[in-house]
Simulated assay, not measured.
Amino acid sequence: MTTRHRATTLGAHGGHGGTMERGFVEREHVAGVVRAALGQGRHAREVLRLRGGSKKGVYRLVLDDASTVVLYVWHPDENYWPAADEDPADLFAEASGADLFGAAHAQLTALGVRTPSVHLLDRSRAHYPADVAVVEDVRGATLQALLERDPAAAGPTMAKLATALDRMRGSAGTRIGRPAAPGPRDGDCARIVLDRAVRHLAEAAERVAGIAAARDRVAGRLTELAAAVRPRRAYGLVHGELGPDHVLVADDGDPVLIDIEGLMWFDVEWEHVFLRLRFGADYRWLETPDLDPDRLRLYDLAMNLSLVAGPLRLLDGDFPDREFMLDIAGHATRRVLAAL
């Protein structure tokens, strides 16, 4: 049903590891999906695969009247992450799939936080041999592009994004976990982050000489930071990877959140560590009072360890934008060592 594309597999150190073929969506494959989403008589004139996704396929469909929608496809051929044995109860296990998307979309919509509107969410496999969604095509730039081009013009959107984050933070939960899945038995966010960071440290030390040399010191620092965190049993709703590239700007300036499958109730400090990292100086728009400085310190180091281990693990497969991932891992390595 899909056209086969050969992809070269490179090892994490840049060596060629082999080849594989992936099937991507072509125009003739989406006829049934378009009819189910938009009605009989509608069809796609063109299918354009958009860059950036590592877990699902994202395509712009140009329709018969020149309007556009976006197609999400959750299929193994669209997932570049190497297979891994994961505990289903692990909050940070691969956040992908139509169920997670649907639940996250419903939760955000109920809060008045904008995401692309959904024309179709189909798990039946009746129109395509994978779960799919057809959603609104928000044709404005990403917030990242707007901030780079005209920071002053991005001000109103940043202010609206801050309001959206306040709404998410105010959606207090008494358990941690995703809207579509139960939370883990251990309700201690700091312990979950610490355990994950220890695993990432071991993984990073196998791949990066500088971290291997400092492994004991990094482990000691993690333990020290975790010991300072006091218990908490109230959580906010967090996106999980809310960089400016995961926010589209609508024609009215509204921020539109995408890649929402990782939405969960968790410590909001986890979100703000990522926001601070990704927005840089523009984080000033999103700062919020009453964040726990002890959690911020622990989560900052843990986040950087994840940004070493994760991108290098992704490069065990055939992910195409290799230099970008190596750059992320390199920057994160420097931040880990600077924290000692």
Rank of each mutant, 00 (worst) to 15 (best):
M1A: 15
H5I: 15
E21G: 11
V25R: 02
L38F: 00
G39I: 03
R42H: 08
R45H: 14
R60E: 12
S67C: 03
H75M: 11
P76C: 08
P82W: 12
A89D: 09
L91G: 02
E94H: 13
A95M: 09
A98D: 02
D99A: 12
L100E: 07
V118L: 07
L121A: 14
A126T: 15
V132P: 05
D137K: 04
V138I: 15
T142V: 13
M158E: 05
M168K: 04
G173Y: 02
P182V: 14
P184R: 09
D186I: 15
A204E: 02
A204Y: 00
A205V: 14
R207N: 09
I211W: 02
A212K: 15
A214Q: 11
R221Y: 08
T223L: 13
E241A: 10
G243Y: 06
D252T: 09
P255Y: 01
I258N: 06
G262I: 04
G262F: 02
L263D: 00
F274C: 05
R278P: 01
T288R: 15
P293T: 15
R297H: 06
S306E: 08
L307E: 03
V308Q: 01
L312M: 12
R313T: 14
L315W: 01
D316V: 04
G317E: 11
F319A: 11
R322W: 12
R322N: 07
I328M: 06
I328P: 01
